[in-house]
């Protein structure tokens, strides 16, 4: 209903403000790891993918869910692991 839309919009706007404020000064060496780490976080869409893939009957929508689970999991697992490797290099160099 309209109430839940307003609640969702409220959450959206507040999260946007947090997102703007959370990134302030950041050293250039951390630009790529931050990009990579936040990219892994955008893989949160895996939650939606799980819901789509967990349906009872196998139809085209569930197939799309399976594809989404695979792609989002690559994003999440690959993203966090690549970020971890980048940061390891970063720490050794300093």
């Amino acid at each position: 209903g309209a109430g839940s839309l307003i609640a969702a919009l409220t959450i959206f706007v507040l999260a946007v403000i947090v997102g703007v404020e959370v990134i302030t000064k950041i050293p250039p060496t951390l630009h790529t790891p931050l990009m990579s780490g936040s990219n892994a976080i955008s893989g949160i869409t895996v939650v939606g993918a799980l819901l789509a893939a967990g349906a009872e009957h196998f139809d085209f929508a569930k197939f799309l869910g399976l594809m989404a689970v695979i792609l989002a999991t690559v994003n999440v697992v690959g993203g966090f692991m690549v970020t971890h490797r980048m940061l390891g290099k970063f720490q050794r160099r300093d």
Partner: peptide
């Protein structure tokens, strides 16, 4: 999804 997505959207 809304919170994490818009967090990444804005910080990105």
């Amino acid at each position: 999804l809304i919170i994490s997505g818009s967090l990444v959207g804005a910080s990105g």
